[in-house]
Structure formats: C-alpha cells, structure tokens
Design a protein around this nucleic acid. Structure first.
Length: 937
DNA sequence: AACTTCACG
DNA sequence: GACGTACGTGAAGTTC
C-alpha cells in the first residue's frame, strides 16, 4: 500500500477534530445569513485550512497531506472498556450540523479526507504515521493532542497548529517525564479523567513518570510492584494491575489498521478554484471567497448560482431508491380548483419540473396544447388547454375537446408561479418551453435545464436528448411520441391526441425531467463543472431565447431574383453537361456521375468508397478539371449553383415567420461537443461568404428601416488561445506586436523575411497553423496543400522544431485525456474523450479531437461569456443582438447609434476572458456595418 | 435512414 | 509497415 511513497516524501496528518473544536471555541457563534445555519466552526475551520495551505512555503513543505476525522463516538475501545469516554459531553447543539460541512470543506480544498467507522482519528493517524515512517518518509502530525505524542520519534514529529511550534522527543519528555516510547506507560498509570481512562488511583503524571524511570517500563513495574517502598503506592499498583493494563490498551494507539487507500493517493494537489469557490459561496463565507478568488485570479460565483432553491436545502435520496415511474399515477387537471392545489404545492416546494406540449416543433409558430408539471416522484399532472376533438377521421371535427380549462384563465393562474423568483422551473431543453410561454405572456425564471446539466457533465460522451438521458440515467424507456401522433404523412398534431393518452405522455416527460434533475444536479460540484454550468450554460438560455425571438429580416425578393438567375444558369450547364456526357442523366446524382466519369468515359483516378460508389467530391472533380476535362469542370459549376439555390435562395424564404416577417433560427446549446453553438431551422451559421456569388446571398440579410447591421468578429481567436495555452513565446510576441501571424510563422520556419514574402510560402504557413489546431497530420496537410506527403511531413517537423512548445502541449493534452477521460478548456468546460484509449486508426481521430477540443472550446467559452454580458452592456442603446457565428456576433441597431454599439460590444468581446482567465495575448475584434450582412462583414 | 456532398467557423 | 486522417457543425438531395 506504500506504492510511490517513500524517501524524500513528507506526509502531513491534520487532526480534523482538533481544528474544528479550536475553530468553534475561538469564534463567536456566526450564522449563515440566508438561513441561519450555524457556521462559526466551518468558517474557522476553512480559514485555518486556507492559512495552512498558504503558509509553509519552506523546504519543510509537505508532499502529501490528509485531514483525519473521528467517525462516530463508539469505537473498539468501548468493547475493551464500556465507560471509555463516557464522561465526554455531547458536542454542542450548534456544532453538530457543522461536522459534515467540515468534511465537505476538506474535500473542497482538495485535501484527502479520512474517517473510518469504529476507529478514532488518533488510530488512523497512528496507522498512517507508522506506514509512512516504515516506507522511509517523514511525518508531521498537526495537532497538540497529548494522546498522539506516543508516536513521536523515528521520523515522526508533531506540530502545534496554534503556536506553530514543533513537538519533538524533547518536548514530549518535558510533558511526560519520559521519552515518546514510554508515554503510553505513563498514561496508563496516570489515567485521564477527560477520556475516562481509569489508570491507577492517586497516581498522576509526575509519579507515573518517576516509577517508569525507575523500573524501565510498565510490565516490569507491575511485576516488581512488591518492591515499591511507599506502602500505599505499592498496594494501589498490586490491587489495580488489571485496570492499569486495560488503561494501557485504551491509550495505546492502533497503528496496524488496514487502509483502503494508498499513501501515494494523499499527494498534495492544488485546490480546484471552481469547486472550492462553489463551496465557500454556498457557505456564504464572503471574505474568504474573495480572498481565494483573488489568489486564483478568478471570480467567485454568486449565491444564486450555487444554490438553486431547494436543491441544496433538502438532501436528495439516490435515484435508485425512488419507485419506478408509473404512468397510472398521473393527474389530469381539468378545473381551477385542481390547478390551484397544484400551484400551491409547487409554491410550497419551490421547485417544479415543467414541459409544454404544442402543435409543432417551431417554437415561434407552435400553439400551446398543454402544460405538464411534476413536483416529485409519481407526482405529475397534465393541464390540457388546446386539445381538439377527432383524431378518429383524418380531419376531425376541429372542435375544442371537452374537459379543459379556459386557456386564458389557466395562463393567468400559472403566470405568477412560473415567474416567481423563488420557484425554480426545471425543463429538458427549457429554452423551447420558455419561448412558447413567452409568446403567451409568461417569462419563466429562474430556470434549470437537465439537457444542459447533462451537457456540462458529459459533453462528448453522448447526446443529451430526453429519451437518451432517461435510458442512460434512469433506466427508463419513455413513451415514444410516435405512438401518439404517428409518423410520416399520417402524422397528426398533438392537439388531436386524446387527452387521456396525452396526459400519460406529457406528465411522464415532466416526471422524467424532475428525476433527471434530481439525479444530475448534485453531480455538478463533485465533477467540478458547477461553474461551467452556471456561467457558460445556464445563462445562455435567456440570451439565446431573446436573439432567436428577435430574428433577422430577409429580403425575399432579392433571394427570389437570385433563384431565378440560378435556375437559368443551371439549365444551361445541365444541357452542356449532358452533351459532354453523351446523354441525359441526373447531374445531382453522384452515383450516376461516377459511373459516367470513370466507366463510360474511362477517366483515371476513380476511387470507390466502402459502399462501392465512385467518389465524385469536389476534390476529385477539381483534379480532373485541372487535367483539362470539361465535364467535371462544368459539374463543379453546376453543383456550386445548385447548392446555393437549394440550400439558401430557395430554402430561406420558407423560413420566414408570417407574424414577424423575419427568419428565426434556433440555436442548440448542447449540440456540439466542444461548447460551440449549432444553428438549425435554418442554419444561419453557414451562409456563404467564401465566393463572390455566395456572398451575394448575404445581401438578402437586411436591417429594418432606419437600422443597420453591425458585425463584430474575433481575429484569429483560436490561434491566440493556442499561443496562451501552449505558452509559445514567438506566437505570443507576434500577437502582442500585432504582426501578420502567418507571415511570422513562415518567416520563422523558412528563414525568409516578412517583407515581400512569397504569398505561396505564407499560404503554407497558414495551412500549418490551422492544421496544428486540428491535431496536424502529414496526410491532412499534404491533402490540404496538394503537396507530396513527405514534403508536408518535413514542414511539420520543421514547425515542431521551431515551436517545440506546441508538441509539448499536444502530448500533454493527449496524456491528460488518456488519464482522466476528458479534457478541459481554460474556463473549466469539460469535454469527455471516449475512445482516446482505443487502439488502431480510431485512436487517431480521438487524439485529434482531444487536441482540438480545449482550443475550439475555449474560443466558444469566450464568445459565450461575451454574449452573456452583452444585453446589459448595450441596454442603453437602440440595439439588439441577432446572430452568433462562432467567432462573430451580428447586431441590428439604429443608424445613429452604430459607433456607440461598436464601442460597447467590442469592449465586451475583447474583455470576455476577464477576469476568469488572464490571457497572455490580446483579443482583437474587427467590426463592420451596413444595410446588409454582406456590407457589415 | 444512410450516404454523399458542401456551406460555414 | 499499414492502417486512414485534418477539428467542429447542418441541410439538401439521392439511393436503398
């Protein structure tokens, strides 16, 4: 068990109980402001531990440490002597609730926290001390407890925590009159009234020491008791010999305890700032939180962020102990009285899981059909509001179904509870429900989201949809929505589902959500993702909901004109292509095209994939075109136009919302593995920009009357993050000096001056810079630059030689991922790396993903932080944030306020890393504005 | 529903 | 020495 611990190591064993009692008695009876929980001992304890961690910067620095606590009052000593410690008073009433918190505090400080049932802290300390000493290490026991003094010597010493004074053999001799090895003999004779160790009546420390000095040890003394000259003393020792032997067994510490952990595992680790701050904030220890935050150069979370109502107040039973989900228990709310009862229960609990049912998936258009609520296991209800009769025939009667509350009345009753700041609303992807309800005049707050909890905990490990989470965490299969509304052409609206059936489905969703929350919420802090959730995930709900609901104006006419022009061009190209191919075929079919190119025309370079089809991707066609073949060149032209037409000019107008006249995308917060957002329905993050023709589509994204679009984007943010995390001096310097980063790289690599550089050389350096972010490979670079693989590899070798820190960063990151199963961004976001320990080709992909994730993820974190701060920063301006495209934010602002907006938004974006992370490189934001997105970009 | 292709950062 | 590769997305169209 002593693996990895030995010579040169120094173990500190801290007597936790001593710290607690000392703290308790030294401080006035402080209480937690929010709920009056006594906090004096916890406060004192935390201050002492913090001080302990900050002090001791000498050569005496421990390498390993643990805090040891007593587990329970009853120990094996009570079997030896039932009255042992029977005199000891119960700990004060206001101290008892603080015991578990001090354990939590210890863990929050990232110090090993040890307690074992049936053993006193002293025995654990003794066992650890002996084992560490036997392994050849040094031990210091942080305590002034005399019962521990028997352990001193042979590499073990004590330290008085208050006086900061070492206690060695000399000090022990001073106290007991004998050396450490005979301390138990003296204690056995003298007894201890506090611990109720009987000893020998009438004999104290002084006499005991004198006797032991004279006879050598206790057994000799007892054997030769008859020789004692003083009659009374002689008689006492003879009469109480057995009692003295029992006393010795009581005071003698057991150093042979089997430990279920290794000494090595006690190695000192730096506290994790976010876990520690989460704890200190929850304890409401403001001064210490501030001090700790300063020390780590970060910020303490707010109380609201760490303590969701009822989440911490009520200890929750493990999910395994909950009864299975039973759809038979659900209630259908059909009248005011029942709804009032449920709302009262929700208000009383301070927390509710909620789910809305609607007529469709587009939350900007869907109508509310019903609301389900859950307050605990088996306590779920469905409130039908918009069901219609008749799923029986295809059309139904369309009449409102019977047995439903009036919609307006129900909303009026729900509103105060759903907007009550003291009632937490939990949802699965609650942004959806928030937007639906917002359209009915209800702005829910505060919020928790099980999808985001899962994402904060396990991004990269799996997806975060409800069915998947229910299966994964609750072992429960949800009723498939298809069983209610069907699929394909025959699909009906949820409004047409019979209310009974709908109740089962909807209430189950609410209950699953409640259970997921119950299961996932407590996992945040132990997994050290509480801050990531609170600062990077949860605040996005409201920010994105506002952006999505604002939408962006589209010039449909412009798109329509482009579509027409594209159609004409495509028709011409199609005719040409058919001519070249020697007959008509579907140009949009890669399969048919492949057969024509590589079989009918017999061109070389045909490669079949795993499905047996020829690859006809742009790369292949470009190569063929470069060889002078006309057909592939025409097909490339056709495809470019086809893409623009079908995906953009034709599709975008279909997304216009008839009520707002704008296009409303939806951002998924938990879609990408790295923390990036993803935009869907429509995707506004892949609007063309790279070609002139494509860029014209951006002209259709326009500002409202009297308004302008403003676009601000981070310059080279990922390379800047790389420079910081990998600590590359040349890169950092270049960003400080504001010079062309790719030219600098080329100059360093190929030894050419930046002035008058060949654009080809710069292009190569640029490709390598990007390659590094992606987890570079010779093959990938070769393909990108279209150069021989050997040449690409030699570039990479040169690059690593010139910037060795990058290789070190990559190795470090992969090693960390292999060990932990995840990587983290600068801001604490965790990205799981399943497959990193696989072997074979699959491992390569996992490696590259692990290298890329902290960089792409940190960039995502930074723009999220900017977005979260943005509403307040631009509140005084006639401006709205509309879009996010990974490193770009698009605003709509009144023309006159453009300069102020640019200044305010740029300030927020450039400072977005602060104060959580002090980047070694500046963040630079470029800005533009105009009547449309093409002009603004 | 899977596959291919291609738009973006 | 070969494996198969640049990282992260979403949508449209074809094919099965």
């Amino acid at each position: 068990m002593t693996d990895g611990f030995g010579k040169g190591h120094h173990l500190h064993l801290i007597d936790g109980s001593a710290f607690i009692f000392r703290a308790y008695h030294a401080l006035p009876p402080l209480t937690r402001r929010s709920d009056g929980l006594p906090m004096g001992a916890v406060a004192g304890f935390c201050n002492m531990v913090w001080k302990y961690l900050q002090d001791g910067k000498g050569s005496d620095q421990p390498t390993h440490a643990a805090v040891i606590f007593d587990h329970s009052a009853r120990t094996f000593r009570n079997d030896i002597y039932p009255l042992y410690k029977a005199n000891r008073p119960e700990p004060p009433e206001d101290l008892r609730p603080q015991f578990p918190l001090t354990r939590e505090a210890t863990r929050a400080f990232n110090i090993a926290c040890i307690e074992t049932a049936g053993f006193e802290a002293d025995d654990i300390i003794a066992s650890l001390a002996c084992q560490a000493r036997d392994a050849g290490g040094r031990v210091t026991i942080i305590s002034s407890d005399k019962d521990l003094m028997q352990l001193v010597g042979g590499g073990v010493e004590m330290m008085d925590p208050i006086k900061a004074k070492p206690i060695g053999p000399e000090e022990v001799r001073e106290k007991f009159g004998v050396g450490p090895e005979r301390v138990v003999d003296v204690q056995a004779l003298a007894g201890d009234s506090i611990d109720n160790v009987p000893g020998a009546p009438g004999i104290g420390i002084k006499t005991a020491a004198q006797l032991i000095q004279e006879y050598g040890d206790l057994e000799t003394l007892l054997a030769r008791a008859a020789e004692i000259r003083q009659p009374k003393r002689r008689q006492t020792l003879i009469d109480h010999a057995e009692q003295i032997r029992i006393s010795k067994r009581l005071v003698e510490l057991d150093c042979r305890m089997a430990l279920d952990f290794s000494l090595e595992s006690l190695e000192i680790r730096e506290p994790d700032p976010e876990t520690l701050l989460e704890f200190l904030t929850r304890m409401e220890l403001r001064t210490l939180s501030k001090r700790v935050a300063e020390r780590f150069g970060t910020e303490a979370p707010t109380l609201a962020e760490v303590a969701a109502p009822a989440a911490s107040a009520e200890p929750v039973a493990p999910v395994a102990e909950l009864p299975a989900i039973d759809r038979g228990l659900y209630v259908t709310i059909r009248d005011e009285a029942t709804l009032a009862e449920w709302l009262a229960e929700i208000s009383g609990q301070g927390v509710v899981a909620i789910d809305t049912e609607t007529t469709g998936l587009d939350e900007m258009r869907a109508e509310l059909v019903g609301v389900s609520l859950c307050t605990g296991p088996g306590r779920a209800a469905y409130l039908p509001l918009g069901h219609v009769d008749g799923a029986a025939d295809l059309f139904g009667s369309g009449a409102r179904a019977a047995g439903q509350m009036d919609l307006d009345r129900a909303l009026a009753m729900l509103k105060p509870v759903l907007e009550d700041p003291s009632v937490l609303k939990i949802g699965q992807n609650i942004k959806y429900d928030w937007k639906v309800l917002a359209r009915y005049g209800i702005r829910m707050a505060p919020l928790d989201d099980t999808m985001l909890l899962s994402y904060a905990l396990n991004a990269g490990a799996h997806n975060h949809g409800m069915d998947e989470l229910a299966d994964l965490y609750l072992g429960h299969r949800c009723l498939p929505i298809k069983e209610l509304i069907g699929s394909g052409k025959a699909q009906i609206s949820f409004a047409q589902v019979a209310i009974d059936k709908a109740s089962e489905y909807a209430a189950e969703d609410a209950e699953v959500t409640w259970r997921l929350w119950h299961h996932l919420r407590p996992k945040l802090a132990p997994n050290r993702v509480a801050t990531a959730y609170e600062r990077l995930e949860r605040p996005m709900i409201g920010v994105l909901a506002d952006m999505e609901m604002a939408g962006i104006r589209i010039d449909s006419e412009h798109l329509k004109r482009m579509s027409n022009a594209f159609a004409q061009k495509m028709a011409g190209l199609e005719a040409e292509i058919h001519e070249l191919a020697g007959g008509p075929f579907n140009v949009g079919s890669p399969k048919q095209l492949g057969e024509i190119l590589f079989q009918r025309m017999g061109l070389a370079g045909g490669k079949q994939g795993k499905t047996g089809a020829f690859s006809t991707g742009a790369e292949v066609l470009e190569d063929l075109a470069a060889e002078g073949h006309a057909l592939p060149a025409r097909v490339l032209d056709w495809r470019a136009i086809s893409k623009l037409k079908s995906t953009y000019t034709d599709a975008l107008p279909l997304h216009l919302n008839p009520e707002t006249g704008r296009v409303h995308t939806s951002y998924s917060i938990a879609g990408a593995q790295t923390g990036r957002l993803a935009s869907t329905d429509p995707n506004l993050q892949n609007i063309p920009v790279r070609t002139d023709e494509g860029r014209r589509i951006r002209e259709a994204f326009v500002a409202g009357p009297g308004m302008r679009l403003v676009s601000l984007d981070y310059s080279q943010i990922e390379l800047r993050i790389l420079a910081h995390v990998a600590q590359i001096p040349a890169l950092k310097q270049a960003f400080h000096d504001g010079i062309d980063i790719h030219a600098m790289t080329a100059s360093q690599m190929f030894g050419v001056p930046v002035e008058g550089m060949d654009p080809m050389i710069r292009r190569r350096a640029k490709a390598i810079n990007f390659g590094v972010i992606y987890g570079i490979s010779g093959f990938g670079l070769a393909r990108n630059l279209r150069i021989p693989r050997a040449e690409a590899q030699s570039f990479i070798d040169t690059y690593f030689e010139r910037f060795p820190e990058i290789r070190a960063y990559m190795d470090r990151t992969v090693a960390g991922a292999k060990q932990d199963g995840f990587v983290r961004t600068l801001f604490g976001r965790r990205i799981m790396t399943p497959g990193i320990n696989q072997s074979g080709p699959a491992a390569g992909g996992a490696r590259r993903a692990a290298i890329n994730a902290p960089i792409q993820g940190a960039a995502a974190d930074i723009i999220r932080r900017a977005m979260i701060r943005m509403p307040e920063a631009v509140a005084h301006l006639p401006a709205r944030m509309l879009l996010q495209v990974h490193d770009e934010l698009v605003f709509e602002v009144e023309e006159s306020a453009v300069p102020e907006l640019v200044e305010a938004a740029r300030g927020v974006m450039q400072g977005a890393a602060d104060p959580a992370v002090r980047l070694d490189v500046p963040l630079i934001v470029d800005a533009g504005h105009g009547l449309n997105w093409a002009e603004a970009h």
